[in-house]
């Protein structure tokens, strides 16, 4: 089967530093896949390459079998690759309603309409309401994003990406900084993401990784260190060594 997302020999160098080192990676359709690695392992660079914020030094990126290596970020989104951000990247002065509505309307090709009042298309409204419900934002739809509780902002962060109707969703530490009381709600919505969306989770939090992921890839010094099922990776002594900061015998 064609992978949802694939990289072939992906390399990114910043001067003398190799941030991504020959990464060949497959995300299967419908996957619940986690990418872990110690700080500075190159997880963020890898995501930026996938989404098109950075251009790779060499290698290929394929989205559902099509080469998107040189495609602009917004076009990758339109092809079905969306991401969330580790640090909230929201529109502070807008409401969740406007934010989700914007993403939906852009996806439906209505973003250029300058003559129409926002909220005048029924199919967009229906979808906004559905997404708000899924991500438990219904009660705060009309509030200013900057005033939302942090947990709600994290939910909105995912909801916006989801509103792009991605077939591949990259979740960058979705639970980072969420207080314990709001954590459950967030994890439940992540767990309830529809199966037709393939998810790559970039995470530090091992509890979340083990509860959510079916496969795990470990990135160390920019290179894929190992990959396997949760069982395999969690019992791998070398992975433990990396996480405990001990030297690894090659």
């Amino acid at each position: 089967m064609t992978p949802a997302l694939e990289t072939r020999g992906l390399v990114k160098r910043f001067g003398g530093l190799t941030a991504t080192d020959d990464v060949t990676f497959r995300l299967e359709p419908g996957a619940r896949h986690a990418l872990i690695g110690p700080n500075g392992a190159g997880k963020t660079t890898f995501i930026n390459l996938l989404t098109g914020v950075l251009a790779p030094t060499s290698g290929q990126i394929l989205l559902e079998g099509e080469d998107v290596t040189r495609l602009r970020p917004e076009l990758r989104v339109q092809r079905g690759l969306a991401r969330t951000f580790q640090i909230n990247q929201l529109f502070a002065a807008m409401t969740p309603l406007e934010t989700i509505g914007l993403a939906v309307s852009e996806r439906m090709g209505g973003g250029r309409d300058w003559w129409r009042v926002i909220g005048s298309k029924r199919e967009i409204l229906d979808e906004i309401v559905e997404i708000a419900d899924r991500f438990r934002l219904t009660d705060v739809l009309g509030e200013r994003t900057a005033n939302l509780a942090y947990g709600k902002q994290r939910l909105l962060e995912i909801a916006v990406a989801f509103a792009c109707k991605p077939r591949v969703l990259l979740l960058d530490e979705p639970a980072a900084g969420v207080p314990e009381a709001e954590r459950h709600e967030l994890l439940a919505t992540v767990a309830a993401l529809p199966r037709e969306v393939s998810v790559l989770l970039i995470e530090h939090d091992m509890d979340l990784v083990f509860s959510f992921a079916e496969r795990i890839s470990v990135l160390v010094n920019g290179a894929l260190f190992t990959e396997g099922t949760v069982e395999e990776v969690s019992t791998d002594p070398r992975v433990r060594a990396v996480y405990l900061g001990e030297s690894v015998d090659e």
């Binding site: 951000f85 990247q89 929201l90 529109f91 502070a92 002065a93 807008m94 406007e98 934010t99 509505g101 914007l102 309307s105 852009e106 209505g110 973003g111 250029r112 309409d113 300058w114 003559w115 129409r116 009042v117 926002i118 916006v160």
Partner: peptide, 16 residues
């Protein structure tokens, strides 16, 4: 309009 809303979003956060 939706176009105007997209402008406001660009002003707020071009990355997103």
């Amino acid at each position: 309009s939706p176009f105007g809303l997209s402008l406001r979003s660009i002003r707020d956060n071009p990355l997103r």
